[in-house]
Write a protein that binds this DNA or RNA. Sequence first.
DNA 1: CCAATAAATGAACGGCGTTCACCGAACGGT
DNA 2: ACCGTTCGGTGAACGCCGTTCATTTATTGG
Lengths: 207, 207
Amino acid sequence: MGITERKERQRAELREHIVQVARDMVMKEGFGALSMRKLADAVEYAPATLYLHFENRDAIARELCVRGFQELLAMLEPAADVKDPVQRLSRLAEAYVAFGLEHPETYRLVFMEDPKLSAALFQDKHEGAGPKSFALLVRAFEDLKAAGRALDATPSEQLAEVFWAGLHGIISLKLTCAGFQGAPAQALAETLVATLVHGPKSSRRSR
Amino acid sequence: MGITERKERQRAELREHIVQVARDMVMKEGFGALSMRKLADAVEYAPATLYLHFENRDAIARELCVRGFQELLAMLEPAADVKDPVQRLSRLAEAYVAFGLEHPETYRLVFMEDPKLSAALFQDKHEGAGPKSFALLVRAFEDLKAAGRALDATPSEQLAEVFWAGLHGIISLKLTCAGFQGAPAQALAETLVATLVHGPKSSRRSR
DNA sequence: CCAATAAATGAACGGCGTTCACCGAACGGT
DNA sequence: ACCGTTCGGTGAACGCCGTTCATTTATTGG
């Protein structure tokens, strides 16, 4: 009949529109400023209408989390293709930091708000976006080890976790404890890379 | 006259009581669950009465931030007295992580909520508790350099910032993205220390 | 043109932070 | 001993919030 298809499409479009407007609000004023009533106002529907498309506010937040993380992943991917593992780590760090600084409110939402909101990203060891991007890092450290430039006694997974934690710490301290760090985030990230990369070859090279 | 003194003391005691009850609520249910009305209920006063002692909810949060940070500092201090800089860093990391895991809601409040709440801790380069404890780390890295066990080309301040960021990243990822990290926080912290400590002497030693 | 189905809504509930006019008790001066 | 003042304390209200549900409005298939 085609008419139910059209309805379904319109329904999906409205849902998408709601998400987009919500995304704008979060990026502009932060997740805390996202209210169902203001969102309803912005899309020109009654508040109750939102509940026809989302279970509740958290469901919208979860959707935004997924998209935010995908954006981050998209920024990491080019860096992950660099062949030299040392440079790859540098580029990954640079991209991660750039994302955090350019999209602070998105970063906050994904990594610093309620675990409930981002939980979906970090389970399913072999499906979710979280583990998938984490694997990029593990691979980088394995390649680094193959080149004899990493702590050999430590599992690559653990090095990757420390690396991610280091980057996350740099960004999130900047976002929450502004002015605590003196050095710019990119410089700290470079230092982080330098400490994780060891070995004989000229290891100090900034970009 | 002594009567105004008594009044002042009672006033201070009530204020203190309010802070303590608020602290309990935050530690038990998180900062998000701290509401002026529930707090008023818990101390058995009307909500409006709280405003005779605090400008607003944020003022209470700021007070809790200061105290939370002092608790953290108290846990760091013994570790800061260790003579050997390598062991000192280990102990500092261990203490920091322990605090974060034992007081997750306090940690969240101080380091992961609105910058407004913790701002007071991180300004006043030579007075605030933040810079003061940061100085502990800088000193540790200076001692480390003196022993020839740190990246000499990098300023101690920057190494300290990376160190703190690394610890913060480990804790805060655990708190927000539970299950993302496979390894326990203490193990990651050890690895972090190992990567920041270089040099000839037996550098791999876990505690 | 009507019955059925789906979309959208207004109004309400309970909770929130915050303000302010008001009350009662304790106080200092006489 | 009385009285005006001062001050800790409060009830009620304002404007927000998320969420629910009975009801209305629009759209569809017969």
